[in-house]
Design a protein around this nucleic acid. Sequence first.
DNA 1: CGTTGAGTTCAACAGCTGATGAGTTTCGCC
DNA 2: GGCGAAACTCATCAGCTGTTGAACTCAACG
Lengths: 198, 198
Amino acid sequence: MARRTGRRPGNQGTREAILDAARAAFAERGFDAASIRAIAGTAGVDPALVHHYFGSKDQLFLAAMNSPVDPGEVLPKVLAGGADGIGERLVRTFLGVWDSPAGSAGVALLRSAVSNDWTARLLREFITTQVLRRVLDQLDVDPAELPLRGSLIATQLIGLAMMRHVVRLEPVASADPEALVAAIGPTVQRYLTGPLPT
Amino acid sequence: MARRTGRRPGNQGTREAILDAARAAFAERGFDAASIRAIAGTAGVDPALVHHYFGSKDQLFLAAMNSPVDPGEVLPKVLAGGADGIGERLVRTFLGVWDSPAGSAGVALLRSAVSNDWTARLLREFITTQVLRRVLDQLDVDPAELPLRGSLIATQLIGLAMMRHVVRLEPVASADPEALVAAIGPTVQRYLTGPLPT
DNA sequence: CGTTGAGTTCAACAGCTGATGAGTTTCGCC
DNA sequence: GGCGAAACTCATCAGCTGTTGAACTCAACG
C-alpha cells in the first residue's frame, strides 16, 4: 500500500511562516480583528493558501497556539522546590514565559479570550486542566481548597499580564522583572499557602 | 433671537434606549464586535437614527461610558477612613461597583480596551487621572511611590474583574463578595502601605 | 391654516470579512 | 518523459460593517 508519488518537497517553511504571522497578528489584534488576508500578506502568501493548510480560521488559531505553549515542561521546575518561596519562583517563571516567543501566543490567547466566546473557553480549560491540575499533583494542597487558591492566583497573574502586555499601564509595563517578583511574589505565596476565608 | 419653532416633543426616551442597548452590546461583545445595526435592533430603531443622535460609533461609545461611571462620588468614602483597613474597603467597593448598572459600562470598557487601541488609552487615562490622582490627594502616600503602588493595585483589581466578569473562571466568578474581600483585601493593603522593592 | 424643524426611516455606498472551487505551476517518482 | 500529487494562485461568492444623504412623519408654533 501507501502509493505515495507526486510532489513531496521540503515544504520550505511557508507553513511555519503562516503560523508565525498568525501568532503575531492574533497577539496584536485578537482573534476577531485579525484577518486571514493580513496574515497571508505578512507571510507573503495568497489568502487561499491559508485555508488550504489549515481549513478554517478557528483551526489556524488552534494550530498557532498549540505549538509554543507547554506548561508540562516549565511547571515541574517551579514546583520541585517545595512550598518555600514558591510564590516568587512562580512569578519569576511567569514573567519569563511572557517575554519568550511563547509570550506572543499568550497575549494572543488573552486578547482573544476577551472578545470571543470559544477562545475564552479555551483559556479557562488551559488554566484548569493544564496548570491547576499539575499543581495539585505536585504540591500537597487540600484538593477542596485548590480551585479557590488557584483562581485567586489566576486573578493576580492574569491581571499582571493584562497590565504589562495588553493595556500597558506604566510603570508596571516596563518595570524590572525582579522588582515585580519581589512585590507580587508574596501575594501568590499567601494565596497558595496562607489561610483561607471560610 | 432664538427662533425655535417646529416639532419639540419630549424625546420620548429613544435616546436613552439607544444608550442602554449600546452599553449592553459593548459589554457583551466589546467595541469592535458590537455593531450599530445590532444596537439599533435591540433598541427598536433604525441604524441611521443612531448616527443622527451620536454622529459616529466612537462618540456613541463615549456617550455610553460617560453617564454611569463616576469615581468622584464613591472614592472619597473609601479614602475617608484613613489607611487602616483601606485594602478591604477598596476591594468591597470595587466589587460593588461591578455588580451595579455601572458594571456593564466597566465590562464594556475592559472588553474594548483589549482589542481596540483608543479605548485602551481611554482605560489607562481613566485609571491614572480619575482614580490614582484622587488617591494621591486624599491619602498621604509618597508621590514618587504612588505610580508603582497604584499600578500594582491595578494588576490585582483588573485581574479580579477579568476573572470574575469576563473570563468567568470558577469559583471566583460566583464567589461570595465578602470571601473575596477577605482574601484579596490584604493584598491591596500591602501594595498601598507595605514596603516597596528598590 | 401653513411653515418649520426635530424624529425617524429607506436605500444605497464602498470596504472589508471568511470561505470556495476551479485552475496553474512545480516538483518527485516510476 | 510523463504521470500524479502537492504547493500555490485567481476570481468570486455572500454577508457583514460604518456611514451618508435624501425623503417622510408629525407635533408645535405663528
